[in-house]
């Protein structure tokens, strides 16, 4: 049983250079699995994330998601169905309305997808904050008063609020400090186990992608050039781009220090 099946996705941006951002891209995601999507900047991975979440329309190709023709949904039907596929963005500072409070941001999905009656919203907000490891006392605070790591946790809370099956994580930990990033990755792995979530983890950082992904797809110039189980893929790279990406991962040339 697959959760998402994409077939032949193609997208060309108009303009002088007619960049082919997606060129016949096909892949699947199973329920509860993380597919890591890796590639250098400009390879089309962010376009793919936006096409999946229906923020950008592809020129060609089909997307089946949760048994529906996801790519053909329109208007109200699409908005109702959107609760099943959520997204977390790279910049936790830009992903919220500039004047939003934590509680305000978390109530939006509750209202839009009729998750709970209005009187239960405060309880839901508290539960969501606890689920992402934040204190419920943050609820009345404006998001601008939170640190980057805290904001990204609120973004994750907002994404799980409508009880999705798939979350698209577009460079979701790239802007975070290493120590914060490690804890957010732990949180994502734990939420996946608890809620049976599937992730599309879009990143340019192979080490981070490897840590969280069951399978990895490698993109170059709008195409998926290589796909496979994470460890097996990295152990035997078949394409030049993957070999270069592996070589570019900075390593601390010492044994891990016992702490």
């Amino acid at each position: 049983m697959t959760l998402l099946v994409a077939r032949g996705l193609t997208k060309t941006y108009p303009g002088a250079r007619r960049i082919r951002a997606l060129d016949d891209v096909s892949f699947e995601i199973a329920p509860g699995e993380t597919l890591g999507l890796i590639g250098p900047s400009g390879c089309g991975k962010s376009t793919l994330a936006r096409v999946l979440t229906r923020l950008t329309e592809p020129d060609a190709g089909t997307i089946r998601f949760g048994g529906q023709d996801w790519g053909a949904l329109k208007g109200r039907a699409l908005r109702r169905a959107r609760g099943a596929m959520q997204m977390v963005f790279q910049d936790p500072g830009a992903a919220f309305h500039p004047r939003a409070t934590v509680a305000g941001a978390l109530c939006e999905p509750l209202r839009l997808h009729a998750i709970a009656p209005r009187s239960d919203w405060p309880d839901h907000v508290e539960l969501l904050l606890t689920q992402v490891g934040l204190s419920p006392e943050l609820a009345p605070r404006p998001l601008s008063a939170l640190s980057g790591g805290q904001r990204q946790r609120v973004a994750i809370a907002r994404a799980i609020a409508p009880r999705p099956k798939l979350i698209v994580l577009d460079e979701a930990v790239s802007a975070l400090d290493a120590s914060v990033r490690a804890r957010v990755l732990d949180l994502l792995a734990q939420l996946q186990r608890d809620m049976g979530l599937a992730y599309l983890f879009v990143s340019h950082d192979l080490a981070v992608t490897r840590a969280l992904s069951h399978r990895i797809a490698v993109m170059e110039a709008g195409r998926i050039v290589e796909t496979g189980p994470a460890e097996a893929l990295l152990a035997a790279p078949r394409t030049e781009i993957l070999r270069r990406l592996i070589a570019a991962v900075p390593t601390i040339h010492t044994e891990k220090v016992p702490s």
Binding site: R54, M87, F89, D91, A94, E108, H113, P162
Partner: peptide, 14 residues
């Protein structure tokens, strides 16, 4: 084009 507008769309806001 800001992220928070994209986020609102993904959330299912009209």
């Amino acid at each position: 084009e800001s992220d928070f507008v994209a986020a609102a769309k993904v959330m299912g806001m009209s």
